[in-house]
Design a protein around this nucleic acid. Structure first.
Ligand SMILES: [Mn+2]
Ligand SMILES: [Mn+2]
Ligand SMILES: [Zn+2]
Ligand SMILES: [Zn+2]
Lengths: 145, 145
DNA sequence: AATTTGACTTAGAATAATTCTAAACGATCT
DNA sequence: AGATCGTTTAGAATTATTCTAAGTCAAATT
């Protein structure tokens, strides 16, 4: 038994069904790992966390599950500089803040009007279907949040 | 003889001096390659282009030169998804547009006020020293520019 | 109920961009 | 000339990710 809430379980099987893929224990567990601690873990970190709930899972399967979750739209990949890809289940429009001191990545909500304004910097012939906004710097004080 | 204009040659040696590094023929040539065709080439593409002007240069040196140029602030790395790092000598604040069809990367000027507005989406404790903005999509019509 | 099917999982090999290592180079200084 | 020291170089090493090929499992079909 993984720790998916009924709502999330429903979203998962809907999204998987919709993209013609199956709901499996491995996919449920990986998804629950992402939902439980929203700190943008790497595949390796997801592997460690998932293994503690499902000791037989393999790294390849974790990569497969993450790819599946991304392909069905439940999870976003977050690439920052040349670091390992991180995974984010936050579907709301948001930016990321990357702390140079700790390496941690935080979600930063972006108001919808800002998204609209952003789109307007694009010349007419450019048709964007996604926008990626990453801030880098550090947190004031010892705030770890 | 590489194709650096006097202005760019000056900027290069100033920036290198300032960061305690030497002006070398390899660094000049790599820099001129970046300035001559501003299409955000990968290290491999920079290698090919540089080799045609300086046949004895090695891949390792191209990586070294690019790193040097980045470290002294004359060139920015552009990382898009998991693709090889690209290099951009445009020092003006700008965003990037990545065409899903062709894989090409274009510069998109961003007005300074937009940069300011962007900074305001950050909660107070976040101190950003850099902002990265990438659009993905495609170009309308057969425009290749 | 047995068989077939096909997606899924798995271990391990392969890939590929980048970094590292250690030796050679070369300009400058003594 | 000889010493110094940053730079260049070829090739090895690293490492996140992808690929391969074999095993698993739960329907679906017979
Ligand atoms: Mn910090
Ligand atoms: Mn296009
Ligand atoms: Zn996020
Ligand atoms: Zn650019």
């Amino acid at each position: 038994m993984n720790s998916l809430k009924q709502m999330d379980r429903g979203a998962l099987s809907d999204a998987l069904d919709h993209s013609g893929q199956r709901t499996t224990p491995q996919r449920e567990t990986v998804f629950s790992v992402l939902l439980d601690e929203r700190d943008h873990p790497t595949a390796d970190e997801v592997y460690t966390r998932t293994k503690s709930r499902m000791p037989t899972i393999s790294m390849a399967t974790v990569y497969n599950c993450l790819e599946t979750l991304v392909s069905c739209g439940l999870v976003k990949q977050v690439n920052i500089e040349r670091e390992p890809t991180r995974y984010c289940p936050n579907l709301a429009p948001h930016a990321h803040f990357h702390c140079r001191d700790t390496g941690r990545v935080y979600d930063v909500p972006v108001p919808p009007d800002m998204m609209h304004e952003l789109a307007e910097v694009l010349p007419g012939e450019y048709r964007a279907d996604s926008v990626e906004l990453v801030f880098r710097g550090h947190l004031a004080k010892g705030k770890t949040k």
